[in-house]
Design a protein around this nucleic acid. Structure first.
Lengths: 208, 208
DNA sequence: CTTCCATCCGATAGTAACTATCATGGAAGT
DNA sequence: ACTTCCATGATAGTTACTATCGGATGGAAG
Protein backbone atom coordinates (compact mmCIF):
# COMPACT_ATOMS: atom_id res chain seq x y z
CA UNK A 1 0.00 0.00 0.00
CA UNK A 2 2.69 2.54 0.99
CA UNK A 3 5.47 3.61 -1.30
CA UNK A 4 7.93 1.41 0.54
CA UNK A 5 6.02 -1.72 -0.33
CA UNK A 6 5.90 -0.66 -3.93
CA UNK A 7 9.63 -1.24 -4.28
CA UNK A 8 9.37 -4.72 -2.86
CA UNK A 9 11.69 -7.21 -4.44
CA UNK A 10 14.71 -5.03 -3.88
CA UNK A 11 17.09 -5.49 -0.94
CA UNK A 12 14.68 -6.30 1.86
CA UNK A 13 15.82 -3.65 4.30
CA UNK A 14 17.61 -4.10 7.58
CA UNK A 15 14.48 -5.05 9.50
CA UNK A 16 13.56 -7.93 7.22
CA UNK A 17 17.11 -9.20 7.17
CA UNK A 18 17.26 -9.21 10.95
CA UNK A 19 14.03 -11.11 11.10
CA UNK A 20 15.27 -13.75 8.71
CA UNK A 21 18.44 -13.99 10.76
CA UNK A 22 16.71 -14.53 14.09
CA UNK A 23 14.37 -17.04 12.50
CA UNK A 24 17.29 -19.02 11.15
CA UNK A 25 19.14 -18.71 14.47
CA UNK A 26 16.18 -20.13 16.36
CA UNK A 27 15.70 -22.99 13.95
CA UNK A 28 19.39 -23.90 13.89
CA UNK A 29 19.74 -23.72 17.66
CA UNK A 30 16.63 -25.88 18.03
CA UNK A 31 17.78 -28.54 15.61
CA UNK A 32 21.19 -28.67 17.21
CA UNK A 33 19.73 -29.14 20.67
CA UNK A 34 17.26 -31.72 19.37
CA UNK A 35 20.09 -33.69 17.87
CA UNK A 36 22.10 -33.52 21.07
CA UNK A 37 19.39 -34.13 23.66
CA UNK A 38 16.32 -35.25 21.75
CA UNK A 39 13.09 -33.38 21.23
CA UNK A 40 11.80 -33.59 24.77
CA UNK A 41 15.24 -32.96 26.20
CA UNK A 42 15.31 -29.41 24.89
CA UNK A 43 12.72 -27.01 26.26
CA UNK A 44 11.64 -23.87 24.47
CA UNK A 45 13.47 -21.91 27.12
CA UNK A 46 16.68 -23.80 26.32
CA UNK A 47 16.27 -23.11 22.62
CA UNK A 48 15.58 -19.43 23.18
CA UNK A 49 18.63 -19.14 25.37
CA UNK A 50 20.83 -20.93 22.83
CA UNK A 51 19.54 -18.64 20.08
CA UNK A 52 20.01 -15.60 22.33
CA UNK A 53 16.43 -14.45 22.20
CA UNK A 54 13.65 -14.38 24.75
CA UNK A 55 11.05 -17.16 24.93
CA UNK A 56 8.49 -14.59 23.81
CA UNK A 57 10.40 -14.13 20.61
CA UNK A 58 10.52 -17.85 20.01
CA UNK A 59 6.74 -17.99 19.94
CA UNK A 60 6.56 -14.93 17.72
CA UNK A 61 8.47 -16.82 15.05
CA UNK A 62 7.09 -20.32 15.62
CA UNK A 63 3.54 -20.65 16.94
CA UNK A 64 4.33 -24.02 18.50
CA UNK A 65 7.44 -25.99 19.34
CA UNK A 66 6.45 -28.56 16.74
CA UNK A 67 6.52 -25.98 13.96
CA UNK A 68 10.29 -25.71 14.22
CA UNK A 69 10.49 -29.27 12.98
CA UNK A 70 7.57 -29.35 10.62
CA UNK A 71 8.55 -26.70 8.12
CA UNK A 72 8.75 -28.76 4.94
CA UNK A 73 9.28 -27.61 1.38
CA UNK A 74 9.10 -31.02 -0.25
CA UNK A 75 5.34 -31.14 -0.61
CA UNK A 76 5.38 -27.92 -2.53
CA UNK A 77 8.30 -29.06 -4.64
CA UNK A 78 6.71 -32.40 -5.39
CA UNK A 79 3.51 -30.69 -6.49
CA UNK A 80 5.44 -28.33 -8.73
CA UNK A 81 7.27 -31.17 -10.42
CA UNK A 82 4.04 -33.11 -10.75
CA UNK A 83 2.36 -30.22 -12.54
CA UNK A 84 5.33 -29.83 -14.87
CA UNK A 85 4.99 -33.35 -16.27
CA UNK A 86 3.95 -33.68 -19.93
CA UNK A 87 0.17 -33.52 -20.23
CA UNK A 88 -0.20 -36.74 -22.20
CA UNK A 89 0.71 -38.82 -19.14
CA UNK A 90 -2.07 -40.17 -16.98
CA UNK A 91 -2.11 -38.70 -13.48
CA UNK A 92 -0.61 -41.86 -12.04
CA UNK A 93 2.16 -41.90 -14.60
CA UNK A 94 2.81 -38.25 -13.89
CA UNK A 95 3.02 -39.00 -10.17
CA UNK A 96 5.54 -41.73 -10.73
CA UNK A 97 7.60 -39.54 -13.04
CA UNK A 98 7.53 -36.71 -10.49
CA UNK A 99 8.81 -39.08 -7.84
CA UNK A 100 11.77 -40.03 -10.00
CA UNK A 101 12.78 -36.41 -10.61
CA UNK A 102 12.51 -35.51 -6.96
CA UNK A 103 14.85 -38.30 -6.03
CA UNK A 104 17.50 -36.56 -8.10
CA UNK A 105 16.88 -33.29 -6.30
CA UNK A 106 17.39 -34.94 -2.93
CA UNK A 107 20.62 -36.56 -4.08
CA UNK A 108 22.06 -33.15 -4.89
CA UNK A 109 21.93 -31.96 -1.29
CA UNK A 110 25.07 -31.40 0.76
CA UNK A 111 25.83 -33.94 3.49
CA UNK A 112 24.83 -31.52 6.25
CA UNK A 113 21.55 -30.74 4.55
CA UNK A 114 20.90 -34.43 4.08
CA UNK A 115 21.57 -35.12 7.73
CA UNK A 116 19.30 -32.25 8.74
CA UNK A 117 16.53 -33.54 6.52
CA UNK A 118 16.96 -37.01 7.92
CA UNK A 119 16.68 -35.72 11.46
CA UNK A 120 13.60 -33.70 10.59
CA UNK A 121 11.95 -36.69 8.99
CA UNK A 122 12.88 -39.00 11.85
CA UNK A 123 11.35 -36.64 14.39
CA UNK A 124 8.28 -36.14 12.24
CA UNK A 125 7.61 -39.84 12.33
CA UNK A 126 8.71 -40.77 15.83
CA UNK A 127 8.01 -37.88 18.21
CA UNK A 128 4.32 -38.28 19.01
CA UNK A 129 3.50 -34.58 19.30
CA UNK A 130 5.22 -33.74 16.05
CA UNK A 131 3.69 -36.65 14.20
CA UNK A 132 0.31 -35.55 15.48
CA UNK A 133 0.67 -32.02 14.18
CA UNK A 134 2.00 -33.34 10.91
CA UNK A 135 -1.48 -34.36 9.86
CA UNK A 136 -2.17 -30.70 9.14
CA UNK A 137 0.57 -30.73 6.53
CA UNK A 138 -1.03 -33.81 5.04
CA UNK A 139 -4.37 -32.07 4.70
CA UNK A 140 -2.68 -29.13 3.06
CA UNK A 141 -0.85 -31.46 0.68
CA UNK A 142 -4.09 -33.22 -0.11
CA UNK A 143 -5.82 -29.98 -1.05
CA UNK A 144 -3.09 -28.67 -3.31
CA UNK A 145 -2.56 -32.02 -4.96
CA UNK A 146 -6.30 -32.27 -5.60
CA UNK A 147 -6.21 -28.95 -7.42
CA UNK A 148 -3.29 -30.09 -9.52
CA UNK A 149 -4.91 -33.37 -10.46
CA UNK A 150 -8.18 -31.61 -11.20
CA UNK A 151 -6.47 -29.22 -13.56
CA UNK A 152 -4.80 -32.13 -15.32
CA UNK A 153 -7.98 -34.16 -15.62
CA UNK A 154 -10.16 -31.23 -16.64
CA UNK A 155 -12.48 -31.79 -13.70
CA UNK A 156 -13.42 -29.71 -10.66
CA UNK A 157 -11.22 -30.15 -7.59
CA UNK A 158 -14.12 -31.49 -5.52
CA UNK A 159 -14.95 -34.18 -8.07
CA UNK A 160 -15.36 -37.56 -6.40
CA UNK A 161 -12.98 -39.28 -8.74
CA UNK A 162 -10.32 -36.64 -8.30
CA UNK A 163 -10.60 -36.82 -4.53
CA UNK A 164 -10.54 -40.59 -4.58
CA UNK A 165 -7.44 -40.60 -6.71
CA UNK A 166 -5.62 -38.22 -4.41
CA UNK A 167 -6.70 -40.07 -1.29
CA UNK A 168 -5.49 -43.38 -2.66
CA UNK A 169 -2.13 -41.96 -3.76
CA UNK A 170 -1.45 -40.26 -0.45
CA UNK A 171 -2.57 -43.30 1.50
CA UNK A 172 -0.27 -45.50 -0.51
CA UNK A 173 2.68 -43.16 -0.07
CA UNK A 174 2.08 -43.05 3.66
CA UNK A 175 2.10 -46.78 4.19
CA UNK A 176 5.11 -47.15 1.92
CA UNK A 177 7.05 -44.79 4.18
CA UNK A 178 5.79 -46.27 7.41
CA UNK A 179 8.90 -48.44 7.98
CA UNK A 180 10.64 -45.15 8.80
CA UNK A 181 8.93 -45.25 12.18
CA UNK A 182 10.72 -48.43 13.09
CA UNK A 183 14.08 -47.40 11.76
CA UNK A 184 14.48 -43.60 11.79
CA UNK A 185 18.11 -43.81 10.73
CA UNK A 186 17.11 -44.54 7.16
CA UNK A 187 16.53 -41.75 4.67
CA UNK A 188 13.20 -41.24 2.99
CA UNK A 189 14.75 -41.41 -0.45
CA UNK A 190 15.38 -45.09 0.17
CA UNK A 191 11.66 -45.60 -0.04
CA UNK A 192 11.14 -44.09 -3.46
CA UNK A 193 11.33 -47.50 -5.19
CA UNK A 194 8.82 -48.91 -2.71
CA UNK A 195 6.44 -46.03 -3.38
CA UNK A 196 6.87 -46.53 -7.08
CA UNK A 197 6.08 -50.21 -6.78
CA UNK A 198 3.00 -49.44 -4.68
CA UNK A 199 1.75 -46.90 -7.23
CA UNK A 200 2.16 -49.60 -9.84
CA UNK A 201 -0.20 -51.90 -7.95
CA UNK A 202 -2.63 -49.03 -7.69
CA UNK A 203 -2.53 -48.66 -11.44
CA UNK A 204 -3.37 -52.33 -11.85
CA UNK A 205 -6.44 -52.02 -9.64
CA UNK A 206 -4.88 -53.43 -6.47
CA UNK A 207 -4.22 -57.07 -7.37
CA UNK A 208 -4.07 -59.49 -4.48
CA UNK B 1 -1.36 -65.98 37.92
CA UNK B 2 -3.20 -65.80 41.26
CA UNK B 3 -6.30 -67.79 42.04
CA UNK B 4 -8.49 -64.70 41.74
CA UNK B 5 -7.52 -64.21 38.12
CA UNK B 6 -8.25 -67.84 37.42
CA UNK B 7 -11.98 -67.24 37.96
CA UNK B 8 -11.99 -64.29 35.62
CA UNK B 9 -15.15 -63.91 33.64
CA UNK B 10 -17.31 -64.14 36.74
CA UNK B 11 -18.81 -61.09 38.48
CA UNK B 12 -15.89 -58.67 38.39
CA UNK B 13 -15.78 -57.79 42.10
CA UNK B 14 -16.57 -54.51 43.77
CA UNK B 15 -13.28 -52.89 42.91
CA UNK B 16 -13.62 -53.47 39.18
CA UNK B 17 -17.21 -52.31 39.19
CA UNK B 18 -16.26 -49.08 40.92
CA UNK B 19 -13.53 -48.48 38.39
CA UNK B 20 -15.90 -48.96 35.49
CA UNK B 21 -18.32 -46.60 37.19
CA UNK B 22 -15.83 -43.78 37.71
CA UNK B 23 -14.58 -44.20 34.19
CA UNK B 24 -18.08 -43.82 32.82
CA UNK B 25 -18.79 -40.91 35.15
CA UNK B 26 -15.72 -39.06 33.92
CA UNK B 27 -16.52 -39.67 30.29
CA UNK B 28 -20.15 -38.65 30.63
CA UNK B 29 -19.33 -35.53 32.60
CA UNK B 30 -16.73 -34.61 30.02
CA UNK B 31 -19.02 -35.07 27.04
CA UNK B 32 -21.77 -33.10 28.74
CA UNK B 33 -19.44 -30.19 29.44
CA UNK B 34 -18.00 -30.37 25.94
CA UNK B 35 -21.46 -30.14 24.48
CA UNK B 36 -22.35 -27.20 26.69
CA UNK B 37 -19.15 -25.16 26.51
CA UNK B 38 -17.08 -26.69 23.75
CA UNK B 39 -13.85 -28.63 24.06
CA UNK B 40 -11.62 -25.74 25.10
CA UNK B 41 -14.31 -24.31 27.34
CA UNK B 42 -14.09 -27.22 29.76
CA UNK B 43 -10.81 -27.74 31.57
CA UNK B 44 -9.75 -31.05 33.04
CA UNK B 45 -10.32 -29.52 36.46
CA UNK B 46 -13.92 -28.70 35.51
CA UNK B 47 -14.50 -32.23 34.27
CA UNK B 48 -12.99 -33.79 37.38
CA UNK B 49 -15.15 -31.61 39.58
CA UNK B 50 -18.29 -32.45 37.62
CA UNK B 51 -17.48 -36.15 37.88
CA UNK B 52 -16.68 -35.75 41.60
CA UNK B 53 -13.13 -37.04 41.36
CA UNK B 54 -9.76 -35.38 41.72
CA UNK B 55 -7.80 -34.21 38.66
CA UNK B 56 -5.25 -36.90 39.50
CA UNK B 57 -7.90 -39.54 39.03
CA UNK B 58 -8.91 -38.08 35.69
CA UNK B 59 -5.42 -38.68 34.34
CA UNK B 60 -5.33 -42.17 35.80
CA UNK B 61 -8.26 -43.13 33.61
CA UNK B 62 -7.46 -41.06 30.54
CA UNK B 63 -3.81 -40.36 29.80
CA UNK B 64 -4.71 -37.18 27.92
CA UNK B 65 -7.73 -34.94 27.64
CA UNK B 66 -8.10 -35.97 24.02
CA UNK B 67 -8.51 -39.62 24.93
CA UNK B 68 -11.90 -38.93 26.46
CA UNK B 69 -13.14 -38.10 22.99
CA UNK B 70 -11.12 -40.56 20.96
CA UNK B 71 -12.27 -43.87 22.39
CA UNK B 72 -13.81 -45.48 19.34
CA UNK B 73 -15.19 -48.98 18.93
CA UNK B 74 -16.14 -48.68 15.29
CA UNK B 75 -12.75 -49.59 13.90
CA UNK B 76 -12.79 -52.85 15.78
CA UNK B 77 -16.37 -53.55 14.75
CA UNK B 78 -15.67 -52.78 11.12
CA UNK B 79 -12.72 -55.13 11.13
CA UNK B 80 -14.79 -57.88 12.70
CA UNK B 81 -17.52 -57.56 10.11
CA UNK B 82 -14.92 -57.41 7.37
CA UNK B 83 -13.39 -60.69 8.50
CA UNK B 84 -16.81 -62.32 8.69
CA UNK B 85 -17.52 -61.80 5.00
CA UNK B 86 -17.70 -64.92 2.79
CA UNK B 87 -14.22 -65.91 1.67
CA UNK B 88 -15.01 -66.00 -2.03
CA UNK B 89 -15.31 -62.22 -2.16
CA UNK B 90 -12.29 -60.18 -3.19
CA UNK B 91 -10.94 -57.96 -0.40
CA UNK B 92 -12.47 -54.90 -2.00
CA UNK B 93 -15.85 -56.57 -2.34
CA UNK B 94 -15.60 -57.68 1.27
CA UNK B 95 -14.82 -54.13 2.33
CA UNK B 96 -17.85 -52.77 0.51
CA UNK B 97 -20.08 -55.48 1.97
CA UNK B 98 -18.76 -54.76 5.47
CA UNK B 99 -19.57 -51.10 5.02
CA UNK B 100 -23.16 -51.93 4.16
CA UNK B 101 -23.66 -54.07 7.25
CA UNK B 102 -22.15 -51.50 9.54
CA UNK B 103 -24.59 -48.91 8.30
CA UNK B 104 -27.36 -51.10 9.69
CA UNK B 105 -25.64 -51.33 13.05
CA UNK B 106 -25.42 -47.56 13.28
CA UNK B 107 -29.08 -47.16 12.40
CA UNK B 108 -30.06 -49.32 15.37
CA UNK B 109 -28.62 -46.88 17.92
CA UNK B 110 -30.83 -44.90 20.26
CA UNK B 111 -31.20 -41.16 19.56
CA UNK B 112 -28.99 -40.24 22.54
CA UNK B 113 -26.28 -42.63 21.42
CA UNK B 114 -26.49 -41.27 17.91
CA UNK B 115 -26.15 -37.71 19.16
CA UNK B 116 -23.19 -38.69 21.32
CA UNK B 117 -21.49 -40.39 18.40
CA UNK B 118 -22.14 -37.38 16.24
CA UNK B 119 -20.58 -35.08 18.81
CA UNK B 120 -17.59 -37.38 19.18
CA UNK B 121 -17.08 -37.48 15.45
CA UNK B 122 -17.52 -33.74 15.07
CA UNK B 123 -14.90 -33.03 17.70
CA UNK B 124 -12.56 -35.62 16.23
CA UNK B 125 -12.59 -33.77 12.95
CA UNK B 126 -12.76 -30.15 14.08
CA UNK B 127 -10.85 -29.72 17.35
CA UNK B 128 -7.22 -29.48 16.22
CA UNK B 129 -5.69 -31.24 19.21
CA UNK B 130 -8.12 -34.12 19.00
CA UNK B 131 -7.77 -34.47 15.27
CA UNK B 132 -4.02 -34.52 15.71
CA UNK B 133 -4.08 -37.36 18.22
CA UNK B 134 -6.55 -39.22 16.08
CA UNK B 135 -3.78 -40.23 13.72
CA UNK B 136 -2.71 -42.80 16.29
CA UNK B 137 -6.07 -44.53 15.97
CA UNK B 138 -5.56 -44.50 12.22
CA UNK B 139 -2.24 -46.26 12.54
CA UNK B 140 -3.79 -48.85 14.80
CA UNK B 141 -6.64 -49.38 12.35
CA UNK B 142 -4.15 -49.73 9.55
CA UNK B 143 -2.24 -52.46 11.37
CA UNK B 144 -5.25 -54.56 12.31
CA UNK B 145 -6.82 -54.17 8.89
CA UNK B 146 -3.56 -55.27 7.30
CA UNK B 147 -3.60 -58.46 9.32
CA UNK B 148 -7.16 -59.14 8.31
CA UNK B 149 -6.48 -58.58 4.64
CA UNK B 150 -3.34 -60.66 4.83
CA UNK B 151 -5.23 -63.57 6.33
CA UNK B 152 -7.83 -63.31 3.57
CA UNK B 153 -5.29 -63.10 0.78
CA UNK B 154 -3.05 -65.81 2.17
CA UNK B 155 -0.08 -63.45 2.29
CA UNK B 156 2.06 -62.09 5.13
CA UNK B 157 0.84 -58.87 6.75
CA UNK B 158 3.94 -56.97 5.67
CA UNK B 159 3.50 -57.91 2.03
CA UNK B 160 3.80 -54.87 -0.21
CA UNK B 161 0.55 -55.56 -1.99
CA UNK B 162 -1.36 -56.04 1.22
CA UNK B 163 0.00 -52.80 2.64
CA UNK B 164 -0.73 -50.94 -0.55
CA UNK B 165 -4.27 -52.21 -0.57
CA UNK B 166 -4.88 -51.13 3.01
CA UNK B 167 -3.25 -47.74 2.50
CA UNK B 168 -5.38 -47.03 -0.54
CA UNK B 169 -8.61 -48.08 1.16
CA UNK B 170 -7.96 -46.02 4.26
CA UNK B 171 -6.85 -43.02 2.23
CA UNK B 172 -10.00 -43.22 0.17
CA UNK B 173 -12.23 -43.51 3.22
CA UNK B 174 -10.55 -40.51 4.77
CA UNK B 175 -11.06 -38.18 1.86
CA UNK B 176 -14.62 -39.39 1.44
CA UNK B 177 -15.36 -38.33 5.02
CA UNK B 178 -13.46 -35.06 4.82
CA UNK B 179 -16.60 -32.95 4.17
CA UNK B 180 -17.42 -33.62 7.83
CA UNK B 181 -14.83 -31.00 8.72
CA UNK B 182 -16.83 -28.31 6.98
CA UNK B 183 -20.20 -29.41 8.28
CA UNK B 184 -19.86 -31.21 11.63
CA UNK B 185 -23.62 -31.40 12.09
CA UNK B 186 -23.87 -34.22 9.58
CA UNK B 187 -23.55 -37.83 10.68
CA UNK B 188 -20.84 -40.06 9.33
CA UNK B 189 -23.35 -42.64 8.15
CA UNK B 190 -24.42 -40.14 5.50
CA UNK B 191 -21.07 -40.71 3.87
CA UNK B 192 -21.33 -44.45 3.47
CA UNK B 193 -22.64 -44.17 -0.11
CA UNK B 194 -19.81 -41.80 -0.97
CA UNK B 195 -17.25 -44.23 0.45
CA UNK B 196 -18.85 -47.04 -1.48
CA UNK B 197 -18.67 -45.07 -4.69
CA UNK B 198 -15.03 -44.21 -4.03
CA UNK B 199 -14.14 -47.86 -3.38
CA UNK B 200 -15.77 -48.64 -6.70
CA UNK B 201 -13.41 -46.28 -8.51
CA UNK B 202 -10.54 -47.92 -6.69
CA UNK B 203 -11.68 -51.27 -8.00
CA UNK B 204 -11.65 -49.92 -11.53
CA UNK B 205 -8.06 -48.74 -11.24
CA UNK B 206 -8.86 -45.09 -10.55
CA UNK B 207 -10.39 -43.92 -13.84
CA UNK B 208 -10.08 -40.23 -14.56
C1' DC C 1 19.70 15.39 11.49
C1' DT C 2 15.62 15.36 14.03
C1' DT C 3 11.08 13.93 14.78
C1' DC C 4 7.59 10.79 14.77
C1' DC C 5 5.44 6.38 14.07
C1' DA C 6 5.13 1.61 13.50
C1' DT C 7 6.78 -2.49 15.08
C1' DC C 8 9.92 -5.57 17.21
C1' DC C 9 11.52 -7.20 21.53
C1' DG C 10 12.03 -8.54 26.48
C1' DA C 11 9.93 -8.94 30.96
C1' DT C 12 6.33 -10.22 33.74
C1' DA C 13 2.36 -12.62 35.13
C1' DG C 14 -0.89 -16.02 34.31
C1' DT C 15 -3.30 -20.46 32.50
C1' DA C 16 -3.80 -25.30 31.54
C1' DA C 17 -2.19 -29.84 30.64
C1' DC C 18 0.29 -32.94 32.48
C1' DT C 19 3.92 -35.64 36.05
C1' DA C 20 5.85 -37.40 40.49
C1' DT C 21 5.35 -38.51 45.01
C1' DC C 22 3.31 -39.75 49.28
C1' DA C 23 -0.08 -40.72 52.86
C1' DT C 24 -4.57 -42.73 53.61
C1' DG C 25 -8.53 -45.48 53.54
C1' DG C 26 -10.96 -49.16 51.81
C1' DA C 27 -11.08 -53.79 49.12
C1' DA C 28 -9.24 -58.49 48.78
C1' DG C 29 -6.88 -62.58 50.23
C1' DT C 30 -5.76 -65.56 54.48
C1' DA D 1 -9.10 -60.13 62.30
C1' DC D 2 -4.95 -59.07 60.00
C1' DT D 3 -2.26 -57.90 56.37
C1' DT D 4 -1.37 -56.93 51.82
C1' DC D 5 -2.74 -54.41 47.80
C1' DC D 6 -4.32 -50.59 45.34
C1' DA D 7 -7.30 -46.72 44.07
C1' DT D 8 -7.60 -42.11 45.54
C1' DG D 9 -6.58 -37.21 46.82
C1' DA D 10 -3.42 -33.73 47.99
C1' DT D 11 0.60 -31.31 47.00
C1' DA D 12 4.25 -29.45 44.42
C1' DG D 13 6.48 -28.92 40.17
C1' DT D 14 7.38 -28.69 34.98
C1' DT D 15 6.38 -27.06 30.38
C1' DA D 16 4.03 -25.18 26.52
C1' DC D 17 1.70 -21.29 25.52
C1' DT D 18 -0.99 -16.44 26.02
C1' DA D 19 -1.66 -11.55 27.22
C1' DT D 20 0.04 -7.30 28.17
C1' DC D 21 3.05 -3.49 28.58
C1' DG D 22 7.02 -0.35 28.45
C1' DG D 23 11.16 0.45 26.11
C1' DA D 24 14.32 0.24 22.17
C1' DT D 25 14.93 0.58 17.18
C1' DG D 26 14.32 0.86 12.15
C1' DG D 27 12.33 3.70 8.68
C1' DA D 28 9.99 7.46 6.46
C1' DA D 29 8.98 12.52 6.44
C1' DG D 30 10.22 17.15 7.36
Amino acid sequence: MTSSEAIEGRSPGLRERKKAKTRAAIQQAAMRLFRERGYDGATVEDIAEAAEVSPSTFFRYFPTKEDVVLRDDYDELLLEVFLAQPPDLTPLQAARAALHSIGGVADALSPEERELERLRMAMTFTVPEVRARWINELVRAFRTLAEGVAARAGRPADDVRVRTFVGAVIGVMLVAMEPLVEDPTREWTEFLPAIDEALGYLEQGLPL
